[in-house]
Design a protein around this nucleic acid. Structure first.
Lengths: 177, 177
DNA sequence: GTAAACATGTAACAGGTTACATGATTGT
DNA sequence: ACAATCATGTAACCTGTTACATGTTTAC
C-alpha cells in the first residue's frame, strides 16, 4: 500500500489539492509510482478519514487543499524506516524472454531489438529530464537525482543486455543452423 | 493478464498438474513472475473452461494433468509476438529514495547500504543458480540463461548505484554539515 | 461563445494476497 | 502411527484500471 505513502511524501512541506498531486504524479513520480486520477482522489478521501491528512482550505470549483498532519508525518517516517525487503517485481518482459525459444530466431531477435531501442529511448528521455531540472533547487531534487541516476544506469544496462542477447542468439544460429 | 501466459508457456512440451506448475513457479519463475497456489489453481480452471488447456489425465489424490491445446499454443504465440510496450513498473524502493531527504543522512545511508547488500546477495544467488543448471540441456535453458544474465547484470547495477549514492550523500554532508 | 484546463467523485471489473478448508498417499 | 508431501478448491479482501458522470473557471 505505497500509493498512500507517495501521497504523504508529496505533501511534506507544501499542502496540495488532489489535482495538484495528480500533476505531480504525472511528472515527477510517473516512472516510479504511476497512479490514476481515480486512485488518487479515492486514497485522499481515505487518508482524510483516518486523520493522516486534513482539508485546510477550499477553493474555487470545489478545490480541496490537503495538509499533512503529525500522524501522517509519523506514518510516513515509519514506512520509510521500516525494514522490509520488497519481493521481486513481476516482469512480463522477462517472462517473454523465458519463452523466446517458441518464436523463430528472427522473431526473437526482433523482440530483443525492440527492447534495446526502448532502453535507448528511455535513456535519452532521462537525459532530457536531467537537463531540464534546476539542480540548484536542492530541496527535494537531491534525492530525485539519485532516482534519475538509477533510471539512467538501468536503461544502459537494459540496452547492453539486449544487444548481448541478440549476439548470443546469432552465435547459436551459426553453430546449429 | 500474464499469469495465463506463464502457465501456457510452462505447458509447452510436457503436460503438468497444478501442483507441478506451482513448483515450477517457485523455482524457475519465482524471480520473474511470482504466483500463489490459489492463483494458479483458479487460472487453470479458467484456462480449461476456455479451451486453452484440457485435462488429459487424472491421478491419485485428485491429481489433474493439463495439456496445452492448439488454441492455447496459438494464444501463447499471439501474446509473445504482440507489439505492446509494458508500462514502467512500480518500485517502492525508488519511491523511498525519492523521500530519502526526510530521513537523517545516517538513516538514508543505512537504507542504501541495505540495498547494496541485497543486490550483492541476489548476485550471489544467481551465480549459484548458474552453477547448478545443466547448460547442456539446451531446450528451455537457452533462454532461461538470458533471463539469468539479466538478473546478474541488474544486481551488479543496483549494487554499484547504491554505493555511488552513498558516496553522493557523504559528499554532500562534507560540503554542508 | 467556446475550448482548455481545473476539479472531483463513483461504479464495474480484473488481478493478486491471505487464509481457510479438506483430504489422500508415501516414506520412515 | 505419524509426518511430510501431494493435491485441490474457495472466500474475503485489497489494489489498481477503465469508464462514466458532472460541473466551474479562465483565456482567447
Amino acid at each position: 500500500m505505497s500509493l498512500r505513502h507517495a501521497l504523504l511524501g508529496l505533501l511534506t512541506g507544501h499542502p496540495a489539492s488532489g489535482y495538484d498531486l495528480l500533476k505531480l504524479f504525472e511528472t515527477s513520480l510517473a516512472n516510479v509510482w504511476p497512479a490514476t486520477q481515480s486512485q488518487i482522489y479515492t486514497e485522499l478521501t481515505k487518508l482524510a478519514d483516518t486523520g493522516l491528512v486534513i482539508v485546510t482550505a477550499e477553493g474555487p470549483r470545489g478545490r480541496k487543499e490537503y495538509t499533512l498532519t503529525d500522524a501522517g508525518r509519523t506514518e510516513l517516517l515509519r514506512w520509510l524506516t521500516e525494514p522490509k525487503q520488497s519481493k521481486p517485481a513481476r516482469s512480463d518482459m522477462l517472462l517473454r524472454v523465458f519463452f523466446l525459444g517458441l518464436m523463430t530466431p528472427d522473431q526473437a531477435s526482433g523482440y530483443l531489438t525492440a527492447l534495446a531501442a526502448k532502453a535507448a529511448a528511455d535513456h535519452d528521455e532521462y537525459r532530457e529530464i536531467e537537463k531540464a531540472i534546476d539542480w540548484a533547487d536542492g530541496n527535494l531534487s537531491i534525492h530525485g537525482r539519485l532516482a534519475l541516476e538509477f533510471g539512467l544506469r538501468y536503461a544502459s544496462m537494459r540496452r547492453e543486455w539486449a544487444e548481448w542477447s541478440i549476439q548470443q542468439i546469432a552465435d547459436r544460429e551459426l553453430r546449429s543452423p
